[in-house]
Design a protein around this nucleic acid. Structure first.
Lengths: 219, 219
DNA sequence: ACAAAACTAAGTATAAATACTTAATTTTAA
DNA sequence: TTAAAATTAAGTATTTATACTTAGTTTTGT
């Protein structure tokens, strides 16, 4: 049974999510909070597996709360809720250490998929998150010395939205089968995208692709 | 022509290296320095391709000098020289941003290989450096949030010296052909080591291997 | 509305990775 | 000195990646 705590300052929203989730075997909403501070208290007390937390709340917003959860090394997976697909919010959520990000308008299926995935230790970011990550520098992946050596090159081409998504997954070292599953495309399609990326970035193999991506600040 | 500057406080050592290198077409020692500070001055003035610099020198040691070179984004490749294969020195050299590391007792062939490789933009670290890297945490590769989440697991097994070397190269996304070349073994040997690593770390593919390596702090 | 670009997915072929094993040689530890 | 462990490298087979192309459909821009 996946125990879930909901944090949102609107009762109607909480009730709606509760109704959506509890219809589902295996997920139970064990407590609720109406702001970030209260969420921290409730988690300390009840130790749920998953926290679904709104980004915008009074007293303490969801991003600060998730950052605090990670600072305290609390053993709970966190799913961010937002009204709209804000690039700023997505980036801040990831930087705060959130395990997932969902829109309030997401379908029941997507909600369930997200809860189950983060409960199992995975990540779940809705929509166009891969290309948002591409467009942002969220991971300081190198030593300072290496950073100072890498020249940020001007891209001599553009990557399409889909290509950015594919690239992000390739750089996570996912194989074509997994990429296909994750993007709901066929394996052959993933293969061709990968091939096209190699051509665009003039890379002969995965290693060169990764290095080129770093050079162009694509990760 | 590869222009080289030597930095070492002992004239005899400089003379010895100079004799060793200048016998070789394509490499010219254009200036010398006897400490780190002097090395910086000489580089500013003469702009060599490669700096070969002793670690232990008066006034400013080699590590600090290389770190300063990188801080100032000076366009010169740096090769560290050390009397012995010290783990501490190797790690510090890498952290300072050195392109290579050699022992004073290295053969002429190794010297030439190292100079040519770093001049061409590559890295050259002598001896047992891959396993030294494995045993140390030299790259802060994650956001703080991710770091706080990753539990440092106790390895339920040991990796042999060779396995560590192979793992380091696999994690650099090198293919078996390149690994074989770099370690002077056959491609089939590299394949078997890779296979054995997958088994030891219970990874199904490169992605899982990378993640396991992170979990166990192997990179 | 239409053309261009992007996405999708099939085809065929080669190379590499993965899977698993066997076995000789070298290195290391006892 | 000897036995065990590690390294090396071959074998065969399956799966995946890479390479390149063609072509229909969908999306986007004009």
């Amino acid at each position: 049974m996946i125990n879930v705590v909901l944090a949102d300052d609107h009762v109607l929203v909480r009730d709606g999510i509760k109704a959506l989730l509890e219809d589902q075997t295996g997920i139970m909403v064990i407590d609720e909070a109406s702001n970030g501070k209260e969420a921290l208290e409730v988690i300390s007390k009840n130790k749920p597996h998953v926290l679904i937390i709104d980004i915008r709340m009074p007293e303490m917003n969801g991003i600060d709360a998730v950052a605090e959860i990670n600072r305290r090394k609390m053993d709970v997976k966190t799913l961010m809720l937002s009204m709209h697909d804000s690039e700023e919010y997505v980036v801040k959520s990831i930087q705060a250490g959130a395990d997932g990000y969902l829109l309030k308008g997401a379908s029941k299926e997507e909600f369930l998929k997200a809860v189950n995935k983060v409960a199992a230790g995975g990540k779940y970011f809705t929509g166009d998150v891969s290309s948002i990550i591409m467009n942002n520098f969220v991971n300081g992946n190198t030593t300072k010395a290496e950073e100072s050596k890498t020249v940020i090159k001007e891209l001599p081409f553009q990557l399409t939205k889909r290509e950015k998504q594919i690239l992000a997954l390739v750089l996570e070292l996912k194989n074509n089968k997994d990429i296909a599953e994750e993007l709901s495309i066929s394996k052959r399609t993933a293969e061709v995208h990968r091939f096209n990326l190699m051509k665009k970035l003039e890379a002969k193999n995965l290693q060169e692709l990764t290095n080129k991506a770093k050079e162009y600040r694509l990760i």
